[in-house]
Design a protein around this nucleic acid. Structure first.
Lengths: 186, 186
DNA sequence: TCCGCTATCGAACAATGTATTTGCTATATT
DNA sequence: AATATAGCAAATACATTGTTCGATAGCGGA
């Protein structure tokens, strides 16, 4: 890819992150980003159709690191039990811990919804593959249960980051399974 | 109150509800509301500072019906067990069922966040008073647990309404306690 | 019924922000 | 070095918000 494109993309994303530490998502204008990144107006719109698209791109970046199986040797999974899922969850919390500061900015305003929406997409598959197949045939409708498992994980994550990640990734992970496993095996 | 004020408030709210069936919250402009309600621009701004304030007012209306204890004889509570809480939850689902159509509009777009935020406020007290006091001293931080109970209830509600309220209020209520009670008494 | 009060109207206006176009410049890639 | 293309600044059209103000219509009390 052209170095110029790469440079401006980095400039824009970095500017956006910097602005997020000072302002709320909805208060950040395209002009703000342009000024902070030292990038021309038309240039921005050639890369991203809207401010929202930029945020989606940033979320995709974050998640691609979090849910990238090939780089993590411990993440070979055989789909046979929830252990793999536990590893993935801890792994996720570790990554989120690293991106803590950036995430606090994103989750502290309306941009939260975009992040949650995108995260839900990733977790949907995971939860279905790893958990639901194991704990089949419960007294709840399938999609209700899957939805509960996903949203519980997401909301716990939000709670954790909002509280400045005081607990360790392992601890938070244990909390999560402490919340849902009794339900699953009731 | 002046009949004129009442009339315009009703016109505005009704117009807003009507628009919600056709458009997404963020796509509805003040001008749209003005046209639909046949109300002058300055009049609107004398009643509501922003579009968001209007939505808050509508939410407050809905919740005032849902969480109005004096009108419901079965809702005398003694704070001694979770039975009262169960009644309240069923009662809530009944009211939401009645407002089904309006709620589907609100929950189908960004306005969802405002609704959820306001609902969270009401449920926060309830959950704390009714549930937490009973199931004290668990292996989770207090605010984590309370948060989990609230968000599970909210998300279940969203799931239910999104799916067009196919289950009965009693059934949904049972699902809720099926999801959380095993955790609480684990 | 009359009168004073005030809610509403509507048009104009400033302010802000989005998104597109254009012609020129700077820089990669080959 | 030649060509393609990314970037830039400025102008512009457009949409939306929120405010102001004088005129008008409708309300409620006497």
């Amino acid at each position: 890819m052209d170095r110029r494109q790469l440079k401006t993309q980095q400039a824009i994303r970095q500017a956006f992150s910097a602005l997020m530490k000072r302002k709320t998502y909805s208060k950040i204008t395209v002009q703000d980003i342009l000024d902070e990144a030292n990038v021309g107006r038309s240039t921005f719109y050639e890369h991203y159709k809207t401010k929202e698209e930029l945020l989606h791109a940033i979320c995709a970046d974050i998640f691609s690191h979090v849910f990238c199986p090939s780089l993590e040797p411990e993440m070979r999974h055989d789909f046979s039990n929830t252990n793999d899922f536990k590893h993935i969850v801890i792994h996720m919390f570790y990554h989120f811990y690293e991106d803590k500061e950036e995430l606090k900015g994103i989750l502290g305003s309306e941009s939260k919804e975009i992040f949650v929406h995108d995260l839900r997409g990733f977790l949907g598959e995971l939860v279905y593959d790893y958990v639901f197949k194991v704990y089949k045939n419960k007294s709840f409708p399938e999609d209700l249960l899957v939805n509960h498992l996903i949203t519980s994980l997401i909301e716990l994550t939000l709670w954790w980051i909002k509280g400045d990640c005081k607990e360790s990734p392992e601890q938070i992970s244990e909390y999560y399974f402490g919340l849902i496993l009794p339900t699953l095996s009731a």
